[in-house]
């Protein structure tokens, strides 16, 4: 067993885990934060994207022990004081989700994208930056619209 201590959505948590435990397993199975999804499990689909020290990463391709000491933010950590994050609000406004499975990863990717590239995102940039997020439904049209609107709203 290995012990890990990390901050998840502002809360310090410690756990003794088998070193094989993936970050997404720690989040979903130990902390019951089931908003982060496992889609492909081969690090293509992006349903499991969370922020580790401010960087978007695929939590199905990171051991929990690698995140020891890190600050992790999941989809559950975006809304503040019962109010949706502007990116979440934009997805709702623009029908940016159909079945909703890819949505947590899409939103976490989108928020980091805005943090990196700013609030004015053109369609081409958004589509290229979504390379690691798959939507089977496949509602990219509205996801792209939602991210452009969410980016502006995050100003």
């Amino acid at each position: 067993m290995a012990s890990v201590t990390l901050t998840v959505n502002g809360r310090t948590v410690s756990a003794d885990v088998d070193p094989r435990t993936l970050l997404v397993q720690l989040l979903r199975e130990h902390l019951h934060l089931t908003g982060t999804h496992v889609g492909c499990d081969t690090s293509q689909c992006g349903a499991c994207v969370v922020h580790v020290n401010g960087r978007a990463v695929k939590s199905c391709t990171l051991l929990a022990v690698q995140a020891d000491g890190a600050k992790v933010v999941t989809i559950e950590g975006l809304a503040a004081n019962g109010k949706l994050h502007p990116m979440q609000e934009a997805f709702r406004e623009n029908h940016g989700l159909q079945c909703g499975f890819c949505t947590p990863g899409m939103i976490m990717t989108a928020v980091e994208l805005v943090n990196r590239k700013g609030n004015n995102l053109d369609e081409h940039t958004i589509r290229e930056e979504l390379e690691g997020n798959l939507c089977r439904c496949t509602g990219y049209h509205n996801i792209v619209k939602a991210i452009a609107a969410g980016a502006k709203a995050m100003r």
Binding site: T42, Q44, R127, L130, L134, I143, K145
Partner: peptide, 17 residues
């Protein structure tokens, strides 16, 4: 058997409609 070989449409494969 995985998305390494099965090609799913990605956002950058498509325009807006």
């Amino acid at each position: 058997g995985s998305y390494m070989d099965y090609c799913m449409p990605r956002a950058d494969n498509l325009p807006s409609f």
